[in-house]
Design a protein around this nucleic acid. Structure first.
Length: 470
RNA sequence: GCUCUCUUCGUCUAGUGGUUAGGACGCUGGCCUCUCACGCCGGUAACAGGGGUUCGAAUCCCCUAGAGAGUACCA
């Protein structure tokens, strides 16, 4: 039996991190076992499903690199099949028509709650003959006694008494099938062997197993993964900032970093923190997933993202960084090779957005100095050093503008003035970067280039002058 | 309310009857150093509570508390 898993989101919003994680788990499980991963769009709710959501989900899957072998299948394209199954159930007496008005159902619910009972349909229409031409829904005839055990790969055996379950609606009055019916039919038709999904579906599972049995299908294995909470331990919502996978992309996270972060939420392999997708496939097992929900921690994601930015191929990071430079109105082709900038800056940024911001000085002059940095370093005492540096730089030929030579010049000037290198390098750094933090002074000068260096030193000297006479 | 689920440092986790309860992020002290980072070394901090079982419980059982899910003509 070849393993077949599926990811089955409903297109009522973007792909959020919780969905992405269950998709990842399903993907890995299929890949690990040499099986197939299917994508299915559960759009039976015509009211709430949108094409934009479908696109957002597809875009998120693509960005993460969670490629599927089959699909996307759309449930709205399979209504005939669902209806055939419902009709079959009807004919066999395993389902029935119900015309109970909503207000009766509502009253029933209120009464049951008042008597401290679990609200459930009372089966009034089970043996009534409803005219097929009058408005009605179809309900599944759930077994009235006995129990159904969900043998979950993560939770273990979870028993449910059939007395807790009621006759759920499988076809709406508008003729559209409902979720519990369509998932069951699809999972069976698509020969899904392992259903990996959020644990909010755990209590639906016994109903689905009953339908499956009524239809004569063999139930798949189930694995209900716990949900992801926000930083504060509350249910994840827009309130927590980014929850959409695409928002993480736009904020400068790498897909491999997000994937790596997500797999470590509820799963681990000893003390290992960094996993390539290949390693995930090799090491992951759904039965090793924790039962408890876990809180999303952006600090750790940031750390992972930085690790990946730092160790990835600079050329690749440069490609991904380019659009972030664009957002700052910078055209990377107008300055140093972006890959060289990445090499110099990678250890200094947690996200690509941040990397772009701290690298802008390589491509254009800054407007204002960082206040604290200027106050501390651009003082009259720095004038002498800057003047000497300027003179030395001015004499340098284009081909001498190398990190080695540049470092040499800075060292020489500090020796001449008999001060520590920092006394010379820091004012120079603030002069050409605008603030007191940057790569090594030689690399920084190299990236900025001779022309801009001289221009910015002049600006700094003017600034010192103005400050001295103020 | 009812059914089901969950509970180890602030967070993610290791741990499956005997450990000084380990690692990671964060925070923090130091080293490195032209700055900021990176890196390296160190510190901080946890078994929800109470009963059992056992020579011995984070690990097994029960209860309590807290958290979550479901209880839709949503998925």
């Amino acid at each position: 039996m070849t393993v077949r898993t599926r990811f089955a989101p409903s297109p009522t919003g973007y792909l959020h991190v919780g969905g992405a994680r269950t998709a990842l788990f399903s993907y890995l499980y299929a890949r690990k076992h040499g099986g197939q991963f299917v994508l299915r769009i559960e759009d039976t709710d015509l009211e709430r499903s949108t094409a934009e959501s479908v696109n957002a989900i597809l875009e998120g899957m693509t960005w993460l690199g969670l490629d599927y072998d089959e699909g996307p299948f759309y449930q709205t394209h399979r209504f005939d099949r669902y209806n055939a199954v419902i009709d079959e159930l009807l004919e066999k007496g395993l389902a029935y028509r119900c015309d109970c008005p909503k207000d009766r159902l509502e009253k029933l619910r209120v009464d049951q709650m008042a008597r401290k009972m679990k609200p459930r349909y009372d089966g009034r229409c089970r043996n009534r003959q409803i005219d097929p031409d009058t408005p009605h829904v179809i309900r599944f005839k759930n077994p009235v006694d006995g129990a159904v055990v969900v043998d979950d790969m993560i939770r273990g055996r979870v028993p449910f008494s059939n007395e807790e379950l009621d006759d759920l609606i499988i076809r709406r009055s508008d003729g559209a099938p409902t979720y519990n019916l369509s998932v069951v039919v699809d999972d069976a038709d698509m020969e899904i062997t392992h259903v990996i999904r959020g644990d909010d579906h755990l209590t639906n599972t016994p109903r689905q197993i009953n339908i499956l049995k009524a239809l004569g299908f063999e139930p798949p294995r189930y694995a209900h993964v716990p949900m992801i909470l926000g930083d504060d331990g509350a249910r994840l919502s827009k309130r927590h900032g980014a929850v959409s996978v695409i928002a993480y992309r736009d904020q400068g996270y790498l897909p491999e970093a997000l994937l790596n972060y997500l797999i470590r939420l509820g799963w681990s392999h000893g003390d290992q923190e960094i996993f390539s997708v290949e390693q995930m496939i090799e090491l992951f097992d759904i039965s090793d997933v924790n039962k408890a929900a876990s809180a999303f921690n952006t600090d750790k994601l940031d750390w992972l993202n930085q690790q990946y930015i730092q160790h990835a191929e600079p050329a690749r990071i440069a490609r991904l960084l380019s659009p972030h430079m664009g957002k700052l109105d910078i055209d990377p082709s107008t300055g140093p090779e972006l890959a060289d900038v990445v090499t110099a800056q990678a250890a200094r940024a947690k996200t690509l957005t941040e990397l772009a911001e701290i690298s802008a000085f390589c491509y254009r002059d800054f407007d204002d100095y960082d206040e604290g940095s200027a106050k501390k370093h651009l003082r009259p005492v720095a004038r002498e050093g800057l003047e000497r540096l300027r003179a030395a730089f001015d004499l340098m030929a284009f081909e001498d503008w190398t990190p080695e030579q540049l470092k040499h010049v800075v060292e020489r000037v500090s020796e001449e003035l008999e001060v520590n290198m920092g006394k010379v390098a820091q004012p120079l750094r603030v002069a050409i970067v605008g603030r007191a933090a940057s790569p090594g002074i030689d690399e920084t000068l190299m990236l900025v280039g001779k022309e801009a260096t001289l221009r910015r030193i002049d600006k700094a000297l003017a600034y010192i002058e103005a400050r001295a006479s103020a």
